[in-house]
């Protein structure tokens, strides 16, 4: 059971989650809780369905069994208007940033505000500048997305994700492919925004070091299940083979180096029957 001692209902609560893609079970009975105000990390090797989990929470995918509740509401059962109301309270940072390429940095951040609030333009401007200030890119507001570096694009996307002051922000692989300086910037940003704005954050990542540095609670996923969970310190002390392989980045272990295949000898000598 999740080691959440607080009596308050967790913001996100998944129980017995099952999701399949074709015949392959991405999730096969996953339970997890995300407590309000904390940074919860979901870690696991590539292909363990971490991004899928975020889409299940955001209601873009429906689970085949089990439930995902956000603020006590069953996401998959929400009708479209209810789902859209819920999503306004969520921000999501996509791996690619997913900025609108035909809009400037300013207009990208202004987009959700203009779509949802109908605030007068001077107020929109103030809000956008505040959000850009929070990610340190107020000076870059006239640039187009094509003119930004990868790290800057991600920070703009972050400003856009928090534009409507969401309750929950989800980060999909925020550190992937960034240089060390940018990584450091993003790590501090995620932590700082979470604490300053009173957010709840879910960070999906396979960058062990950075994630462990900012997370309050960590889930490790593999083979469609939660194989370990706890605070970063608890995980570091874990004796599980699995956790050790993942945290110490060992090439072979419970997660095999080889994709499932027949024995090499059999494969080499079967005369090219099966390719």
């Amino acid at each position: 059971m999740p080691a959440d001692s607080s009596t308050t209902e967790p913001l996100v609560k998944a129980r017995g989650l099952v999701f399949r893609r074709g015949d392959r079970a991405i999730f096969d009975g996953v339970d997890l809780d995300v407590s309000a105000g904390r940074v919860t990390a979901i870690m696991g090797p590539s292909g363990s369905g971490k991004t899928t989990l975020l889409r299940l929470i955001g209601g873009q995918l429906r689970p085949h069994a089990g439930s995902v509740r956000v603020e006590g509401q069953e996401v998959a059962a929400l009708p479209r208007p209810g789902l859209y109301r819920l999503r306004r309270r969520m921000g999501m940072l996509f791996q690619s940033g997913a900025l609108f390429t035909d809009l400037s940095v300013f207009d990208n951040v202004a987009f959700p505000i203009r779509e949802h609030t109908g605030l007068p333009e001077p107020l929109v401007r103030d809000l956008v500048l505040l959000k850009l200030q929070a990610v340190g890119l107020r000076g870059a507001r006239h640039l187009m997305p094509a003119e930004l570096s990868g790290g800057m694009a991600r920070r703009v996307a972050l400003a856009r994700a928090i534009a409507l002051d969401p309750v929950l922000v989800m980060y999909d692989e925020p550190f992937t492919g960034q240089d060390p300086i940018t990584m450091g910037v993003l790590v501090t940003l995620i932590r700082r925004l979470n604490d300053l704005l009173g957010l709840t954050s879910i960070v999906v990542s396979h960058d062990v070091h950075e994630t462990m540095a900012i997370a309050d609670y960590v889930y490790v996923l593999a083979d469609g299940r939660v194989i370990a969970e706890g605070t970063p310190d608890e995980l570091r002390d874990s004796s599980s083979e699995w956790v050790r392989q993942f945290l110490d980045a060992r090439p072979d272990g419970p997660v095999p180096f080889h994709y499932p295949a027949p024995a090499l000898e059999a494969d080499l000598f079967d005369g090219g029957e099966g390719r």
Binding site: Y84, R88, M92, F94, A98, F100, E115, H116, A157
Partner: peptide, 18 residues
């Protein structure tokens, strides 16, 4: 198609914009 490939449509959905 490009907006879809670069997840712009998906992120729009997550911003509660249809």
């Amino acid at each position: 198609g490009l907006m879809k490939a670069t997840e712009q449509l998906s992120s729009m959905e997550m911003m509660a914009v249809d």
